[in-house]
Design a protein around this nucleic acid. Sequence first.
DNA 1: GCCAACGTTGGC
DNA 2: GCCAACGTTGGC
Length: 154
Amino acid sequence: MSRCWLMKTEPTTYSIDDLARDGRTHWEGVRNYQARNLMRDMAVGDRVLVYHSNAKPPCVTGEARVAREAYPDPFARDPDSKYFDERATAADPRWFMVDIEFVRKLASPVPLDILKNAPGLQDMVVTKRSRLSVQPVTSAEFDIVCSLGAGDTR
DNA sequence: GCCAACGTTGGC
DNA sequence: GCCAACGTTGGC
C-alpha cells in the first residue's frame, strides 16, 4: 500500500516544468528534521503532489512518484553548496534526500485558496499554513486534489 | 516588502 | 532543560 505526500518547491528554483523536462530528479536541500523524517518514511512508488510555494498563486501543479528511497544528501558535505552543513559526516550524514520521477502536470493547477475551501480537504496539512516542506497526504486528499486539477477551469 | 508562525541555537 | 534571540518560510 503506497502512501501519499506533498512536496513544496519554489518554481523559480525548481518547477514542475523542470521536473517534466528532467523526468527524474533528486530532492536535495531539505534541512528540517520533521521533513527529513517524513522523507525517510517514503517508499518507491509512493505518490507525490508537487506544490509551488512562493508562487502567484501558490498551488499544486503536478504529480510525481518516489523513484528511490532516502539516502544521504551529498550536498550537505559539499562546502560549495548552499545546502552545506559542517555537522554532516560520512558516518552520520544527518540530511537525506529521495529521488522522484515526473508523472504528470495537472490540467489546471489547484491554488491554495481552492484547497482551503474544497470539501474533504479541511484537514490537509498544506491548508493549515504549515511551513513543512514535506507533508503527509491521505489518499482521499490526493484524489480530491487530482480531480480538482483535472478540468480546465479557465 | 511585511510580518506571523515557528523551528533552531545557545547562554544560563 | 528553559527560553530569549534569531533566522527562515511563505502567504499576503
